[in-house]
């Protein structure tokens, strides 16, 4: 009788079957590692830097006591980077998406995306060369006699911010471009008609209606930059160290995996907060 009562696979089952590979993938390579990292972060440091029992809160204490300034610096660097990306990216995206000629728009977008054709690492090395003691910036400034001796450009937090802005600007421009493109400029006419000048029309109408793009851009830049380690490593030196570098150090060679895990959990928590802000404010209008 089982053959009679058995239900034919309906849309629901087949939907689940279709999602199964993704679910397995995410469980195996995302959920499981997160759980492992979380558990390890409460273990003690064992041989070769691996975790071993007993459970302890020492890692978190150490994160708080020793690494707090670097975490705060990291948040600050990520925040400044994101704000600069916003200040540069919004006008840029606005300019591009308001060009009348569609060929012009496509070309400008292409130019924005073009750097991705070169490996990020290569581009960062290029920046390193440009900013170095004998790099092009110093050479030009010296030749123009604006400087008497080479300036310390490399291995500063500013160099890290420059590198991050350079690397992540497209992630700000693209979502803002999308929302400005969707924006209906008759709302600006309506605002003008009701007595708003350009600035007020922008603040009261354009900005609120393109805010989803701004917030998406904010998230897309903030999250990767707060965990960045290549850029601070190559451009920041010891003065530009970020939380990503700390984590990397703990997992390399005979580091301290439980400590690295605790740092990772803290990083994840900060990213979660950013995401919650996005969920709360990001997609309200649509």
């Amino acid at each position: 009788m089982a053959s009679i009562t058995r239900r034919r696979p309906g849309p629901k089952q087949s939907g689940f079957m279709l999602a199964l590979p993704a679910i397995l993938w995410l469980t195996l390579f995302f959920l499981l590692p997160v759980v492992i990292v979380f558990v390890v972060s409460f273990l003690s440091r064992g041989r070769g830097g691996a975790g071993e029992l007993p459970f302890t809160l020492a890692n978190y204490e150490r994160v708080w006591d020793v690494f707090r300034p670097i975490i705060i610096d990291s948040v600050w660097v990520a925040f400044v980077t994101t704000v600069i990306c916003l200040l540069v990216g919004y006008p840029l995206a606005f300019f591009i998406s308001t060009r009348k000629d569609p060929r012009m728009r496509s070309f400008a977008l292409f130019m924005i995306i073009l750097p991705f054709w070169t490996n990020f690492l290569v581009r960062t090395y290029a920046l390193q060369t440009i900013l170095g003691r004998e790099g092009i910036v110093n050479t030009v400034l010296l030749n123009l006699q604006l400087l008497s001796e080479p300036a310390q450009l490399l291995n500063t937090p500013e160099a890290v911010i420059l590198g991050l802005v350079y690397g992540y600007l497209p992630f700000m421009v693209l979502p803002i471009y999308a929302s400005v493109e969707r924006f209906d400029f008759r709302f600006v006419e309506a605002a003008h008609d009701l007595g708003a000048n350009d600035i007020r029309a922008f603040l009261r109408v354009v900005l609120p209606l393109t805010l989803p793009g701004v917030i998406a851009g904010f998230i897309l830049v903030f999250i990767p930059t707060i965990g960045a380690f290549v850029t601070p490593d190559l451009l920041g030196g010891t003065r530009g160290i970020m939380i990503g570098n700390l984590i990397q150090q703990q997992f390399r060679g005979s580091g301290n995996q439980p400590l690295g895990s605790a740092l990772s959990v803290v990083l994840m928590a900060m990213v979660m907060i950013a995401l919650l802000v996005y969920i709360r404010f990001g997609d309200k209008e649509r």
Partner: peptide
């Protein structure tokens, strides 16, 4: 400029600000 002319417009598709309430629209 438009914002200094003593005229107001009712647009063909109204152009009400979608992110504001009706009251905020009228008060704008």
């Amino acid at each position: 400029p438009p914002f200094h002319r003593p005229v107001n417009t009712v647009f063909q598709d109204y152009a009400l600000f979608p992110h504001m309430t009706v009251q905020k629209n009228v008060m704008f």
